[in-house]
């Protein structure tokens, strides 16, 4: 983007920076709170609760150690990666073509397909009807039971459709004139131009699968298949049911710290992924696409 450094523009930039700083500050409060909570030592916690600032010498990674060294942790992490990876791929493979198809305005029957999927967006059948279907298909104790029912989100499909619609029609027409079929157009023309939205929607799916704990509880009986959110949930529930667990303390951290550490651990991969996605937010957009 061209940057003209007029006085107006600079004043505007300062305004923008101040606005973003305020937003950042407000949003950092809960985040900061969670970080402090995760690192607060147990004795500090029981003495004075969670302080707003930790003294540089008064912090501990005990809560993280306790979670990460749990004997079921590696397995749960692996399961989570499998569910998230496989789920995101399947979701995108089903979403992209549909979104593309619906973005072709003159496709006969487009409204029919639109209504077909919108109907399922409006009317959600609820827990039991889905459960009946999945168990009848024999998907109990299978990751596909977690992945398939939510694999295509109508919301994500339509958002992606809108982005495809935004791409200039000339691109498609030019490619069609060159003799490309729709597969080739989608693959060679549309997708490279749509990296931001595909990554965004991919991120939406990945985050959904990464955080999902209820359907694993429902459909997976085999403990070896449990993903990370379920394990963390079990650890936290256990820590809060201690009146019936009378033996030595299993927890050398406060329940609050465990919760916070659990959240930070689940955030970590997402924290790593997002800046990587942002690289594609500036590159690979329409720049030059039309001119070539």
């Amino acid at each position: 983007m061209l940057r003209v450094r007029t006085r107006d523009a600079i004043a505007f930039q300062i305004g923008v920076a101040i606005f973003l700083s305020i937003i950042l500050f407000i949003i950092l409060i809960p985040l900061w709170r969670v970080i402090v909570t995760a690192f607060v030592p147990l004795d500090t916690y029981t003495r004075e609760g969670i302080p707003f600032f930790l003294a540089p010498w008064d912090w501990t990674v005990e809560a993280f150690r306790q979670l990460i060294t749990h004997s079921l942790f590696p397995r749960a992490l692996l399961n989570s990666f499998i569910i998230t990876g496989l789920g995101t791929i399947i979701s995108l493979l089903l979403t992209i073509p549909m979104a593309y198809g619906l973005s072709v305005k003159n496709l006969p029957g487009r409204n029919f397909f639109m209504i077909l999927i919108l109907f399922t967006y409006l009317f959600s059948p609820g827990l039991i009807p889905v459960y009946l279907l999945i168990t009848r298909m024999g998907l109990t104790d299978n990751f596909l039971a977690i992945i398939l029912p939510p694999a295509v989100s109508v919301y994500n499909t339509l958002v992606m459709m809108r982005f495809f619609e935004g791409l200039p029609d000339e691109l498609r027409e030019a490619a069609a004139l060159d003799g490309a079929n729709e597969f080739q157009i989608l693959w060679n023309v549309m997708l490279p131009l749509s990296k931001p939205i595909i990554l965004t929607i991919g991120l939406f799916y990945a985050v959904y699968f990464w955080n999902e704990f209820f359907t694993p509880i429902l459909y997976l009986n085999d403990h070896d298949l449990m993903p990370l959110p379920v394990l963390l949930r079990n650890i936290l529930i256990s820590a809060s049911f201690n009146e019936y667990v009378e033996y030595d303390a299993f927890s050398s951290s406060a329940l609050e710290s465990l919760k916070a550490a659990g959240v930070l651990i689940t955030m970590l991969p997402m924290l790593a992924i997002y800046p990587w996605i942002q690289r594609y937010f500036t590159k690979g957009t329409l720049v030059g696409g039309v001119k070539e």
Partner: peptide, 10 residues
């Protein structure tokens, strides 16, 4: 081709 593309999703 478009019908074929969206067939799996349908």
């Amino acid at each position: 081709w478009i019908y074929l593309l969206i067939l799996p999703t349908v």
